[in-house]
Write a protein that binds this DNA or RNA. Structure first.
Length: 437
RNA sequence: CGGGCUGUAGUAUAUCGGCAGUACGCGACCAUGGGGUGGUUGUAGGCCGGGUUCGAUUCCCGGCAGCCCGACCA
């Protein structure tokens, strides 16, 4: 927790005046959008849509994204991942080593420069990392190894959809692991699986670890982390009792039948794949001659694994799951701010000065205590508008300061996920936030 | 990529083929001040290209774009 706070503090300010905020809320739902995440995130000014499947992140959206990334970094660093950052722009020759220049032409954006050279924009980075790893892995002493990045991917999706759920340009956390043998890959694979479980749990998401096709790389299953949601594009057969699940693509299970692992019943549901983990075997190490010398002096191919999470997709999924008809309900772990301080002006000028003074004081005190606060200091906005915006933005704790509350030397506190309203004395409000941590 | 729907101010929406209107937003002013408050006023628009027509935002064709269903998704 401390680590995350330290990390975030490096590039997120603790506070913001809403009157200065880049990105305004919209009263109307955007035309054509159906997915909740697209509607609320665009309306709230978290993101801006440039084209289908391509989104820009504005301050509020970037804050959420950064916090998701911070959670991911903390957990992946925790299992020994070293962070790197690879280029998206890559030479054709690299892709030809695994034949994906041709075989992946349906998903890869391929382009040519003015001199006629061909390039591909990375839709994944197995080739890149395998090539680079040949300069770092020589001996069994260099293994195991895990490196990861949070980086932009490009995919020529024939049908981008559902806001942040499926894009053509999107962020991906991709982790690659390198091992001396299958057994060691197996060992790390289960460690990574647990780290993934912790990540999703911290974001308040219920995920089903779903058995899925291992693709061309391996005969065994890969595992997808699926969140039940109508905005998803996968179908999974799952048991709500024990959590066992299989992707419909490969499943022999049938809806309504007894679960093979417990007494539950198999159900069929739409879901969003928020992460997946994959045993790559030696496909890429073979293509790039990524070998090491074992203790007996024999050359062997490195065994690889890959593990992906889409932070942007995750943000969209959280909105799909955690919202009501008025807007988003962020979990505290990734909310853009902890507190939304709302100032309601009075018709009485003298009262107004008092309210404003109390607002500035409280705003300053919260900052000093490290409470991330969005201060709605906008003038000429009606209380109704401010409340509606607060509900839309979904910051966990709403603090209202008005003539009424000042008269009682207090602040009204309401959580976004509850209807309970209570008054907290002005001098106790900082303590209120401190005690929450 | 196949199918469907849709393109009008910043946003959301009207308009029998005849001077493009309303609401919100934004600016100004007045009132109001605990759930998108009331009024006056200003601001700003027909996706692109063809065709039909005296005249096209409206009808037709083609493009492009967006959304939805499906296919695809290392």
């Amino acid at each position: 927790m401390l680590w995350a706070t330290y990390f975030i503090a490096h590039y997120l300010t603790q506070y913001m005046r809403q009157s200065q905020l880049f990105g305004k809320t919209l009263k109307e739902n955007p035309k054509d959008e159906v997915a909740k995440n697209a509607i609320f995130l665009e309306r709230g000014g978290f993101i801006y849509k440039t084209m289908a499947g391509v989104h820009d992140f504005l301050p509020l959206g970037l804050r959420v994204l950064s916090k998701i990334n911070a959670v991911i970094r903390e957990e992946i660093n925790g299992i020994g991942g070293q962070e790197i950052f690879l280029s998206a722009f890559q030479p054709r020759e690299r892709w030809e080593k695994t034949d994906r220049w041709d075989s992946a032409r349906a998903v890869m954006y391929r382009l040519t420069d003015n001199s006629g050279h061909s390039f591909g924009l990375g839709f994944t980075h197995e080739e890149a990392i395998a090539e680079i790893a040949t300069r770092s892995i020589f001996s069994y002493k260099d293994l195991p190894l895990a490196v990861y990045q949070i980086q932009t991917k490009f995919r020529d999706e024939p049908r981008a959809k559902s806001g942040l759920i499926r894009g053509r340009e999107f962020l991906m956390k991709d982790l690659y692991s390198f091992h001396a043998d299958e057994a060691d890959l197996e060992r790390f694979y289960s460690i990574a699986k647990m780290a993934y479980e912790r990540i999703f749990k911290r974001l308040g998401l219920k995920t089903y670890i779903t058995e899925a096709s291992g693709g061309s790389f391996t005969k065994s299953f890969s595992h997808e982390f699926q969140v039940l949601s109508d905005a998803g594009e996968d179908w999974i057969l799952y048991c709500a009792v024990c959590g066992y699940a299989q992707n419909k693509e490969i499943s022999q299970l049938k809806e309504g039948e007894r679960c093979s692992k417990c007494l539950g019943t198999v159900a069929l549901g739409r879901s969003v794949e928020v992460g997946n983990i994959f045993k790559l075997g030696t496909k890429f190490s073979n293509a790039f001659n990524l070998q090491y010398i074992d203790a007996d002096g024999n050359k062997k191919l490195v065994v690889m694994g890959s593990y992906g999470i889409g932070p942007g997709r995750l943000m969209g999924t959280v909105v799909e799951i955690m919202s009501d008809e008025r807007g988003i309900i962020w979990p505290e772990s990734i909310a853009p701010f902890t507190a939304h301080l709302i100032l309601l002006e009075s018709k009485d000028a003298t009262e107004n000065i008092k309210i404003k003074k109390a607002g500035e004081k409280l705003y300053g005190e919260l900052q000093k205590k490290g409470v991330e606060v969005l201060y709605d200091d906008r003038r000429d906005k009606s209380p109704g508008q401010k409340f509606a915006d607060a509900d839309l933005l979904g910051i966990p704790v709403r603090c209202v300061l008005s003539e009424k509350t000042i008269a009682k030397k207090s602040v009204e506190i309401k959580r976004r996920n509850s209807d309970v309203v209570k008054l907290v004395a002005l001098e106790k409000i900082v303590a209120f936030f401190s005690s929450k941590k």
